[in-house]
Design a protein around this nucleic acid. Sequence first.
DNA 1: CAAATATAATAGTAATACTATCATTTAATA
DNA 2: TATTAAATGATAGTATTACTATTATATTTG
Lengths: 224, 224
Amino acid sequence: MHNILSNLRVDINSSLYLKDPESSQLGINIVKSSIDLIDANGIEEFNFKKLARVIGSTESSIYRYFENKHRLLLYISSLYWGIMEFQMVVQTNNMSGSLEKLLKAVETLFSTPQTKCTSFEIEGQKLRHILNSEFVKAYHHKLVDEENEAGCFSIYKRLVSRLSEMIVEVNSDYSFSKSLASVIIEGSLNQYFLSEHFHNLTDCHSKDNLYLFYKDLLTKTLMS
Amino acid sequence: MHNILSNLRVDINSSLYLKDPESSQLGINIVKSSIDLIDANGIEEFNFKKLARVIGSTESSIYRYFENKHRLLLYISSLYWGIMEFQMVVQTNNMSGSLEKLLKAVETLFSTPQTKCTSFEIEGQKLRHILNSEFVKAYHHKLVDEENEAGCFSIYKRLVSRLSEMIVEVNSDYSFSKSLASVIIEGSLNQYFLSEHFHNLTDCHSKDNLYLFYKDLLTKTLMS
DNA sequence: CAAATATAATAGTAATACTATCATTTAATA
DNA sequence: TATTAAATGATAGTATTACTATTATATTTG
């Protein structure tokens, strides 16, 4: 794996866009305002017509950047996971104890994304909120296999792999490192969603509680 | 001879339909064929026009049973969770050891739903496949709060509560029984989905492996 | 300045997700 | 059996969505 510390730019797979939104002010406006709109009203209510109105542009111009709103959601998702991966690597870099390293990695998963390392001025809380509510729709999609093939999920998959490797470092005899990693990353979104909409289906109503839940789970599962 | 299972009526919240589909042959055809179609092509490709064509009826007739395809998906989901709840209760009934009981409950979560005990002739595998791919869309939805209020998720929530209670029975000091229960039930769908579409993000490619993963997780988390 | 490129303005299309109306068939009941 | 009510079918229509196409006008670059 290449060292992402050297370049602060989240490198997003070019299959996700038609024209790189970071290459122009219009592109930046598209991404920035789409995050505002999707955060506010969800992906179902969102469309390019509304977005065009907000940024003072037109549908046809937006379509030159993104094939459709689904691809734009995949782009936003990759941005999120890229930031989380970056934070995770920075935070755990040079840590010696494998368990401490894993727990620190998990802790960063529950923290707000630091969007300063992108070209966009985005509020991290909005980005997280979108992922909590909409990411499952990004991959529970009829084209998931061909999009996966095209690399649309590469950052996400790399993050799961990183976490899985950290689990192996803690306990090389453990047989389910990938499943455990995906459960945790999935939970880093879903438990927030449950807290918001199905309050009684989770005990974790804060970042801190979430961390305690998974810390307990990981420690017992891997160390006993 | 009548099996107790043949008397099962999954009691589905009436807010999910306009006219009870179990009350007529047309209603039964709607549910049965919608499961075939959604299983085959996913909820996005599915609509009432196509369904009407398949069952030899009309859009307007279908709209008399279900407000829209989203509500129909909620109905199908409730059917699934109702069957799973029933199986779980039957399988764990009269078991004495709390851990064994919990593990048996979890094992049934990964088994195929026994649909013979409903009014519909449904293939359980299709039902499971739909839930694996589409259930997240049923609750990551703009109307989730009002639908939740109306009782559209009551069976699902009751199932999570039951599992949570079994966890408490095993270890009353454990602080995260609800979160753990929701993680497991969520995983009972998502790990199957990962196996199908993101093969490398899970270690569990069979029912048996899935059970071993969660058995290990539960035993260590609650017993150490 | 000319040429290339990006964006805007406008129009149009096919499909979707419904709603409305009325005719007809089927079932319930008196 | 006749009458009525309920269920279903046939047909049409609407607003919205998710695009595509075309041409005009800026803006950038060589």
